[in-house]
Design a protein around this nucleic acid. Structure first.
Lengths: 346, 346
DNA sequence: GGTTAGCACTCGGGCATCGAGAGTGCTAAC
DNA sequence: GTTAGCACTCTCGATGCCCGAGTGCTAACC
């Protein structure tokens, strides 16, 4: 059975109400709402239908009804009107993102903080994917006789650094020269090409072969590590405000998901080219999050997909507001991380 | 009134019991304990005295008694026997600390993780104080025409990096030379001396004065920032297991303290030269932590005080175990961070 | 005189009871 | 097709009650 106009209307009214109150909605409540000109009895019939169709559920006989995951799905797909963020809110986000330091880490932290503040849910932010970066420079810095620090400067001034072992007797000047060679070979390459380019360099090389191979290994390992690890969480305790988490057990479960990068990270792998991804309850695939929803968006870095930002909240979250907040933040982040030479820190 | 032998005995029995059960202790329970050869009635008299002296409190008439902060104070000062960690536990800590990466960040994270695991409380770890570090190298890496990345390599391979603005037209080679000059001037200096040394370098300098001044500013700002920010938290949700936090409101308050570096950091400023600092309940000075205790210890880096590690738990925490865990971890960290050339990553 | 048994008393937690309120589903009338 | 009415169900909060745990006091005991 397709849902007719009136069912949509009623369903939306119920969801809207439930999102703000977290209390099961009864027929009287819906009937009183503006825009619905029917008596409770009529509403009841419709609600009964909606329940049968799987959009509503009753916690028990004499409570009202609450929307099911299926209802939220419908809601975000068809009923949702995404508003713009208010001027104040946009300014709030922009301001919070305007940190002195140009360190990407700091920016991401600020972003998570701002998002969690503005939504009052929990924010997740991943670092830009390495695949979206290009190498600017590779620099080897001597640390002691046998160790050097390899520093990779990418666009957006992300730094990856690793200690590598070097043959003894390499002078700073020699390392500097090696750095130049490496930089020339690798500059402006996307990181995904590194292995290949490296192989070419290696082929043309006479001396220091071993060193270069070591550098390459270190580089690759480091990048893989990095890719997997970094998720910044903002406002983890925000969700404890909501009645969904008045039970400590649930709260603990939720928080322990946030502590485990392994569970968190897959959720933030961007699913295709969509601007937004919304996962409702069970759709997250994480049992502990079965009454949470996760909304993610991506930001870009120099026209490549950069990273993911997301909000976790109860399934009855304010999807509209969250979407617009993520949208705005995505644009802001894209701007900040891509600005390159356009702006300088003081 | 001084406490006689028997009062000590009884008080310890009560505290021991309460620490493991979290349930108010009655006279019968104490009497049944091994080592106490008195009837409940006698115990009652003593308990009554202890209450009058401020060591015990009764939640209400017909519950048992619970230890006061004063009692815990006495307990840790005089009654506590600090055991050694078991072989297994020591191995556990060592193993968890044995991470591939030599990055200090990673090590600190691992330490926090291991500590929270082994104690089942919440662990705090601060990065080594900048004052305890020495500069190994200063390196300027070109990023684009007007920007360079300044990298400071310190012992324990901590990296501080900042973008600075440079005059146009500086070639990589020139920057490299500048780096050499800086390194020679600053190498092996403790960071606290930097300003002074810098001034000397600056005096002898003819060209590039401005650039050097810029570098110096950037360096100092960066260091100050760093000092204030970094606190690694391990197992924040661990405390939610305890009945003290069966109320979500308390849990939220606690967690929000962990989220605020401002409240957290002062707690970890090491108070003097003590090996351990124990702050019980109100002694923390943070209202939200009034029924928590905080135990901290320090680790060293190259014979300087490095940073702080700490455990937050309920006031009825297993002080003995926590102390030995912190002691062991402190030694391990000191070892790892000071090993310098003694070991290399694969 | 310190120690202990006995006993009356107190208090909170658990449990059943009860009524109020909210909401439903059904039927019959509009 | 819509609505009013009504009986029914279920939760929630309040009330009262009992039980157990624990205390404090007194008097007896060693």
């Amino acid at each position: 059975m397709a849902l007719d106009e009136r069912k949509f209307l009623i369903l939306r009214a119920i969801i809207d109400d439930y999102i703000t109150t977290a209390v099961p909605v009864g027929s009287r409540t819906v009937s009183r709402k503006s825009g619905v000109g029917f008596s409770p009895a009529t509403i009841r019939n419709e609600m009964s239908d909606l329940e049968e169709l799987g959009y509503l559920a009753s916690p028990h006989t004499s409570a009202g009804r609450i929307p099911s995951a299926k209802a939220y799905r419908l809601y975000v797909d068809q009923l949702l009107k995404v508003g713009e963020l208010s001027k104040e809110e946009t300014d709030f986000l922009r301001e919070h993102l305007n940190v002195r330091s140009a360190q990407v880490d700091t920016v991401l932290n600020a972003a998570a903080q701002a998002l969690s503040n503005i939504t009052q849910y929990t924010a997740l932010v991943t670092a830009p994917a390495v695949s979206s970066m290009r190498i600017r420079r590779v620099q080897l810095v001597p640390v002691d006789d046998q160790t050097a620090l390899m520093i990779v400067v990418t666009n957006a001034s992300i730094i990856k650094d690793t200690l590598i072992r070097v043959p003894e007797g390499l002078t700073p000047d020699l390392l500097h020269n090696l750095s130049e060679t490496l930089t020339q070979a690798l500059a402006d390459q996307p990181l995904s090409n590194v292995r290949q380019r490296f192989a070419e360099v290696l082929r043309d090389l006479k001396e220091n072969r071993k060193l270069f191979a070591g550098v390459m290994n270190a580089l690759e390992n480091r990048l893989e590590d990095e890719e997997k690890t970094k998720v910044v969480v903002g406002g983890p305790s925000n969700l404890l405000h909501y009645p969904e988490y008045s039970d400590v057990g649930r709260a603990r479960d939720f928080l322990s998901v946030l502590e485990s990068r392994e569970k968190l990270y897959p959720l933030l792998r961007t699913g295709g080219s969509m601007e937004f991804t919304i996962r409702i309850g069970p759709e997250t695939g994480v049992p502990e999050l079965s009454d949470c929803s996760l909304v993610t968006a991506t930001y870009r870095m120099d026209d490549q997909t950069g990273g993911t930002i997301g909000i976790i909240g109860p399934t009855r979250m304010h999807y509209g507001h969250v979407l617009s907040a993520l949208g705005t933040m995505g644009r802001l982040l894209t701007g900040v991380l891509s600005r390159e030479e356009t702006e300088k820190e003081k």
